[in-house]
């Protein structure tokens, strides 16, 4: 075994630096050995590249996926977090490809960035599932997602109905709190709502701040909006944490009763959006399914049944959560640990 060529820099560096490089090797190799998944019997290796563990929706996906695959009994699941960085996710997927897993699941951080590397996976003969977001070319075996445009439309309808109830006719001031721009989910949730709202010129969109899905950022952006807008009726945020952030900003300025807050995601658990509807913080949220139960079901069938040929795309319907159904849904979601 010879030393890999790249270890030799163009000119001899300090011996020290080389020693440190070697130490790093040792550390890495040493950590490694024990944990590699065993391939005895009929066990399958499933690799999952998650775009950003920091979002609650993503964390819920991870938790449910770990639970379901563990229950399946014959799957070793590996999850890597890209920390919302395209380059890092590309690198992670590349590394997974080298490991030749039986199935590769990717929740892309951004569609364009992951397109090419997903193509590489296809070329390497690895079956892939795009979870919740797809890529720009059909470089995947299966795409499991929900319909964000439908969510946007549902939210639009809900807002129109609320304002009609409030003022007798569909008019009022709206704030749309946007997630990370350029992401499919964000664009669709925005466009779906616009599709409905554009029919009612008396409903004015007074601000469209961008908070990148993050609650703290949403609170800051909303505070700025509140300072400049004396009258706001509805805040429609493209995920629940941003809706909660907007709510907190309004509450701080004592204006939370002047407006309602509408979110999207509808996660279970005490921190999820459904609970916020139960508590009366949010007027409504729209459950964007985690898509994980369907993904795992399809995945297991793909792994176990060589004759199974999955659909190219599974589109899961969203669910509207309001005061009417929140309590019962909360019990159901929280007990089953997912949706």
């Amino acid at each position: 075994m010879t030393e890999p060529a790249f270890l030799r820099p163009p000119c001899a560096p300090s011996r020290l630096a080389v020693a440190i490089g070697c130490a790093a090797f040792l550390a890495a190799a040493g950590c490694g050995g024990g944990k590699a998944p065993s391939r005895h019997g009929k066990r399958f290796l499933v690799a999952f590249s998650q775009c950003n563990n920091a979002e609650p929706y993503r964390a819920a996906q991870n938790a449910l996926m770990m639970k379901l695959f563990a229950e399946a009994g014959d799957v070793d699941l590996v999850i890597a977090d890209a920390g919302q960085d395209n380059s890092r996710q590309v690198a992670q997927v590349e590394t997974f490809i080298r490991q030749k897993p039986d199935l590769l699941i990717v929740a892309p951080n951004e569609r364009a960035a992951l397109t090419a590397v997903m193509g590489q996976a296809m070329q390497a003969g690895i079956r892939t599932i795009c979870l919740e977001r797809d890529v720009l070319q059909p470089n995947y075996t299966v795409y499991v997602h929900s319909d964000n445009v439908a969510i946007g439309r549902m939210a639009g309808d809900f807002i129109v109905k609320y304002l009609t109830g409030k003022y007798g006719s569909p008019r009022g001031n709206l704030v749309q709190m946007r997630g990370l721009l350029g992401v499919e989910g964000e664009i669709s949730r925005y466009n779906g709502a616009r599709e409905i709202l554009d029919r009612y010129p008396s409903i004015r969109t007074v601000a469209e701040p961008v908070a990148d899905w993050i609650q703290a950022r949403a609170k800051d952006r909303m505070t700025e909006v509140l300072r400049s807008q004396p009258s706001i009726d509805v805040v429609y945020a493209h995920n629940d944490p941003m809706a909660v952030g907007a709510y907190l900003a309004a509450k701080e300025l004592g204006r939370d009763h002047q407006m309602i807050f509408v979110g999207v995601d509808g996660l279970g658990g005490p921190a999820g959006g459904v609970k916020k509807v139960v508590d009366g913080v949010l007027a409504a949220t729209f459950v964007y399914p985690l898509c994980v139960d369907k993904t795992v079901a399809v995945a297991l069938q793909m792994l176990r049944d060589p004759h199974f040929s999955p659909d190219k795309e599974y589109n899961l319907p969203p669910v509207m959560v309001t005061q009417a159904n929140a309590a019962s849904l909360y019990t159901q979601l929280t007990l089953s640990g997912g949706n």
């Binding site: 090797f25 890495a28 944990k35 590699a36 690198a91 992670q92």
Partner: peptide, 17 residues
């Protein structure tokens, strides 16, 4: 060498899951 150290280390950790 420093750059490669980080790269190699990250890669090995990932390969070993």
């Amino acid at each position: 060498v420093g750059t490669l150290t980080i790269g190699v280390l990250t890669n090995m950790l990932r390969l070993n899951n």
